[in-house]
Design a binder for these strands. Structure first.
Lengths: 230, 230
DNA sequence: GGGAATAATAAGGTCAACCATAACATTATC
DNA sequence: GATAATGTTATGGTTGACCTTATTATTCCC
């Protein structure tokens, strides 16, 4: 269990894997794209991670985290989301920016600091974007939402979390009010992967009958929602 | 002035230079020792830093920070000491440990974060070890103390700051009560670089007539004190 | 002035994490 | 079953920051 010191690069690979794997193997190509490296580089790196027992790679099938790798990935993600909370709640930094800023800090955070930070923040359970924060033992209650891209026309749902990592994408979504807690009605879905049209009511103002927003399907995949029974 | 991204190693060299230079050139050997690298490696690195205009190296004379390098070094030190305050005051971590922990965080801290952190902490002026925190513009009021190793027998002084970086050394000093604010009377100084003997009154308890402590001269150099007029 | 300590330079080596290009293997799709 | 897409392996290259060993240059001090 001793998690000596893993390189920043190693931590980024493992974090990327936990972010894009739905409990199944991930294609190397996708991983490479997510990390902005070439498939060849990703292949090399995956081989090294495999040798260290952090992932298991089945040629032509994909990469999956081992138990050890999963533990590390949870830990890295925990550190990041705690820093996001700190940056957003305490330092009052930009909602769209804290993912990137926390990403730098996460690799420089000793276990004692992580735990003390969590206590200081009151053991928060989600980051500012709504994603769950793993407990020190690696457990967490997973979100039971679905991507906004899969919601039927006419349905009204509430945004639970936003899964994006790029500051630009987050800013784009924020400008349209798509933040955790807001309510969204799908008004129209264009054919051929066209955008969906939404009415967005900012959190806490569900009476307002907010503005109409067109959202590309790929962007809508980042937005996790649950249906509203009301 | 654009401080793009300098490597962690670069920042460590510049920080080491500002820490051990008394406004004069530093011998490469000393720098190498401080950073635990070989003189040959330090030489190479100094050449690179010189090429980047961060230091100026006069062969056989030593290295000095340029204005640009000084600015960066101040900034790095500022980041570190702010993190020390956060870790010590807010997260309530060990006094002896926060230097090392903050040292990791400092390299991962964006300028916006530094400024927001400083505001959050109430623009502190010193770190938990008593060393000054540079303002955002690089200015700070330097300490006017002298090393405890230079104090005459019989004198009573107050500890202003502790300049050590190793957790072990800091822990050793803490165990003997040598923290900022405490009062110290030099009882005896052994010849031939022998230890000095002190009476240490912890901060806020100057009536108590504290314990006697023997301290090696090299350790006493880390402790910055000012005389007490009382 | 000579020798010791220190500093500088040269040459060659390692390691992690990338890159490109090219060849080859496998899987998926028409 | 052929072809395209994707994945894998091989080879060779780069960069930063270290290392060792050896040689040469300078400075300091008796």
């Amino acid at each position: 269990m001793s998690v000596q010191h893993l390189s920043e690069s190693t931590e980024m690979y493992l974090k990327a894997l936990i972010e894009i794997s739905d409990h199944e193997a991930v294609a190397i190509g996708r991983l490479a794209e997510r990390l902005s490296v070439t498939p060849v580089s990703a292949n090399e790196m995956v081989r090294r991670l495999d040798e260290q027992g952090l992932v298991s790679h089945t040629p032509y099938k994909g990469v999956a985290l081992t138990q050890k790798g999963h533990q590390v990935a949870c830990d890295v993600t925990r550190r990041q989301r705690l820093w996001e909370c700190f940056l957003y709640d305490q330092l009052e930094m930009e909602w769209a920016q804290v993912y990137e800023l926390a990403c730098d800090l996460e690799h420089a955070t000793a276990p004692e600091v992580t735990d003390a930070l969590s206590a200081f923040l009151g053991e928060p359970k989600t980051c500012p974007h709504g994603n769950p924060i793993y407990a020190a033992d690696g457990t967490c209650t997973p979100l039971d939402g679905v991507p906004l891209s899969t919601v039927a026309v006419g349905d009204t749902v509430q945004v639970m979390a936003v899964n994006a990592t790029s500051t630009d994408v987050l800013k784009y979504l924020q400008e349209r009010g798509l933040m955790p807690g807001c309510e969204v009605t799908v008004i129209e879905a264009a054919p051929m992967q066209g955008p969906i049209t939404l009415r967005v009511d900012p959190a806490g103002e569900s009476e307002a009958g907010g503005k109409e927003v067109a959202l590309g399907l790929l962007l809508a995949e980042f937005v996790l929602v649950k249906s509203i029974h009301s």
